[in-house]
């Protein structure tokens, strides 16, 4: 007989089941979805969930990387290897190429974060993708906390927080008019800690920069930036070598490292559980421009 006490799902199993449901729902109802893959930990988890949702069949949509050209080399290697394993198509939307053709212009500060938006929108339109899966989580940031799982965007890719579709039960409304598309966030209800616990449980490989390593860094506004071809200290500014790791992987000019000795998944989980800073607050220069930085970028059509 059914004994309710035996039928309990752990938090990771519940989140996995919900994310898989979302992948299948979009694949069933929307034409030409695409999965946005950055090589970061969230998109790695997302790709794993997509794989599970359709197994033993192949993932029925391509993967797209909006490539700022400001990459950590470890991340690109990782991306190509994973795409090959899964046998999915990779679409690369290149910011460098968009600069060369004059679609966007290099910013005075050298950051290409904001330039991703027009490049992403153009690639969605060119390929007629109706839905783009993104790895954003609601625990990341205040504006994200209010975004639906299906985030409806108008023809300019803009998010309008006041007119979101109500999302009730598991009844998602994915209807779009021609020219419109939606962003879908299957990891909406996951936290940074859930993501790391899932990486551990599934033995997922993640780029080595997520783990503690010695790196030449310099201090800018209290954040530690790694010295690389895209990111250099101001003239005369001292650099030093520290044991650091990255909590997020974004544009190499904007993403800061944190001091850490966590050189394994288990240690990263322990560190995340006791961290007193949000991952964006600790590492993302781009969210520091203003209190409402993310809200503004989302309105422009950002991820």
């Amino acid at each position: 007989m059914s004994d309710a006490a035996n039928y309990r799902l752990s938090q990771l199993d519940t989140l996995e089941a919900e994310s898989i449901f979302i992948f299948r729902e979009v694949a069933a109802e929307l034409e030409r979805p695409v999965l946005l893959f950055s090589g970061g930990k969230d998109s790695i988890v997302m790709l794993r969930l997509a794989e599970k949702a359709f197994a033993p069949a192949r993932i029925p949509f391509p993967v797209m990387h909006v490539d700022t050209g400001h990459n950590f080399p470890e991340v690109l290697e990782f991306r190509d290897k994973r795409v090959q394993e899964l046998g999915v198509n990779l679409v690369v939307a290149s910011v460098q190429e968009a600069i060369d053709r004059g679609l966007v212009h290099e910013q005075p500060d050298g950051s290409r974060n904001r330039l991703q938006t027009p490049v992403l929108l153009e690639a969605l339109e060119e390929n007629q993708f109706r839905a783009a899966f993104g790895g954003a989580r609601r625990d990341e940031e205040k504006a994200r906390a209010k975004e639906r799982i299906y985030s409806f965007r108008d023809e300019f890719g803009q998010w309008e927080p006041k007119s979101q579709r109500p999302e009730v039960w598991n009844l998602f409304n994915g209807r779009v008019h021609p020219g419109e598309n939606i962003r879908v966030f299957p990891l909406s209800n996951w936290t940074e800690l859930d993501v790391w616990e899932y990486i551990a449980r599934e033995s997922l490989e993640v780029p080595s920069i997520y783990f503690a390593h010695r790196r030449e860094v310099f201090d800018r506004d209290g954040m530690l930036y790694g010295v690389n071809e895209h990111c250099r200290p101001a003239p005369g500014q001292a650099t030093f070598t520290e044991s650091v790791r990255y909590r997020t992987v974004g544009d190499a000019t904007l993403t800061a490292a944190v001091r850490s000795d966590a050189d394994s998944v288990e240690k990263v989980i322990a560190e995340t559980a006791t961290s007193r800073l949000t991952e964006r607050g600790a590492t993302r220069g781009d969210d520091r421009f203003s209190e409402a930085a993310m809200e503004d970028r989302k309105r422009e059509g950002y991820f």
Partner: peptide, 28 residues
């Protein structure tokens, strides 16, 4: 209170999701 529009007007526009966890449970 997340969005700038809300902070300015002192109201809440939409459903906001919060996450917390204790050793016993995760709460959404």
């Amino acid at each position: 209170d997340g969005l700038r529009a809300e902070r300015e007007q002192g109201i809440t526009i939409d459903v906001a999701y919060r996450y917390l966890a204790t050793p016993r449970r995760k709460f959404i």
